[in-house]
Design a protein around this nucleic acid. Structure first.
Lengths: 242, 242
DNA sequence: GCTTCCAACAATGTATACATTGTGGCATAT
DNA sequence: ATATGCCACAATGTATACATTGTTGGAAGC
């Protein structure tokens, strides 16, 4: 799903997004186009195009007087984005169950599940965390596409908000034990979702997928309330102003 | 909610969108930037910005060789867009019920409902159809915003697809009796949604809102299967191929 | 000393010029 | 006659120049 294009717009998109997610540009900061274009080595035209796209994604907002600024997010904004992701993933799961899924695709999903099991083998400290993250992302992306292209697009869109994506709290540096422990329950939910889809149990698939996204909310609230020191380690969570 | 801005980008956005929705540009048509810029009297820079935004909205897609083309929609694409709108409106209603809504806002919604009743007074032929359309749009927009700004934004986004909006099959010229008759059931659902929210019955509110959107699907299937002559009267339905 | 107005500057919004890439047609060779 | 390769043109992608609007600092007047 990664675009091979190396257009200037694409470069600008990645560049600015990285500056925001990494916390280099803090919430509310005005984005001066000339300064940014010089910093990134990209002319203003593709840069502006990228900024407009980031506005659609929600990371950036327009200022009344013109131009763009890094958006501020409240805790509730993040919670709602996670909730929405859960609702949409639930819809993908429900529609997949109701409409039916090719056996080959279900088999591929089950293969992903067994691979995840493999990555989690051993103790919490021993597990192949990086591989889990990779496989988890692949699993979710495949789930998104089970129902239809339209559904996939919408979930992919909401997941562009860095803190709403299924991998938001699974960054590699994070050695938070509580996060790793939550993965066992998460994997059980993965299995249950696929099982429900296979049995054409739409309501069950939807409910579990919604609940699955709640893990991200739990992690969010844990970080914000009990371990604020971790905030810089979660993508774009530094943009959350209470 | 209407932007007062008269920027060239805004003009281009409205211009191109109108050309597409009106059926002037048919599905699959490549959008030549120079020709369009001359036709609209707008230079290429803001025009390209508008095209990029229309791509985000889904009306337009990029071509592999570069440039844009009017998107083709299948029947299933439209069905999924309507389904998604229903799911999201259901989420707005559920969250509103679960989280609670200010009495003043509920009162305003109930006032809208009574106004709709007023517009529907009399026989099918006598009713003030234009006013119904206007009030219906206002009701839905207000419902979208009951839960949170984030939810509102997402529903507003999906409703930008002309055939997914709550007003898609309520165009003024349409004198289709079947459509008008469906409005009585629709209004009953409006009441039930607000009643459920007032009683904090989230599940019920969500279910009814989802079912409410199904009316649009019924209308869609009626037009496509039984009255294809009406296709040009429904915004952007001419983009639906096969 | 504080406020207000004006002017200069700096930033965004727009237009246009340039570069690069894809496409189509024509000619030539098999 | 058909297929292939090359060349010319046209379209998009990018950079830059220009216009317009907002902002800030300083000076003058109260």
């Amino acid at each position: 799903m990664s675009e091979a294009r190396v257009s200037q717009v694409h470069r600008a998109l990645l560049g600015v997004r990285d500056l925001i997610v990494s916390g280099d540009l803090t919430a509310g900061t005005r984005l001066h186009e000339v300064a940014l274009s010089e910093k990134l080595g990209i002319s203003r035209t593709p840069l502006r195009s990228a900024l407009a796209q980031l506005r659609q994604e929600g990371l950036v907002e327009t200022i009344s007087s013109g131009g763009y600024a890094v958006r501020r997010f409240s805790r509730d904004d993040v919670i709602d984005a996670i909730e929405l992701r859960g609702v949409l993933e639930g819809t993908a799961a429900r529609l997949a169950a109701e409409r039916g899924v090719d056996a080959s695709r279900l088999a591929e999903l089950r293969w992903l599940l067994s691979e995840i099991d493999g990555a989690m083998r051993g103790s919490e400290a021993e597990m192949d965390f990086d591989r889990y993250v990779e496989l988890n992302a692949a699993f979710h992306e495949m789930l998104w596409g089970l129902a239809s292209e339209t559904i996939y697009r919408e979930i992919e869109r909401i997941s562009r908000l860095p803190f709403a994506s299924p991998s938001a709290f699974l960054n590699k540096q994070s050695g938070v034990p509580a996060f790793r422990r939550s993965l066992y329950g998460a994997q059980a939910q993965h299995r249950a979702i696929i099982d429900a889809i296979g049995r054409r149990e739409g309501t069950r698939a939807e409910a579990i997928a919604r609940e699955h996204a709640r893990l991200a909310r739990l992690n969010l609230e844990y970080v914000l309330d009990e371990a604020p020191g971790l905030i810089p380690q979660v993508p774009a969570l530094s943009l959350v102003v209470s």
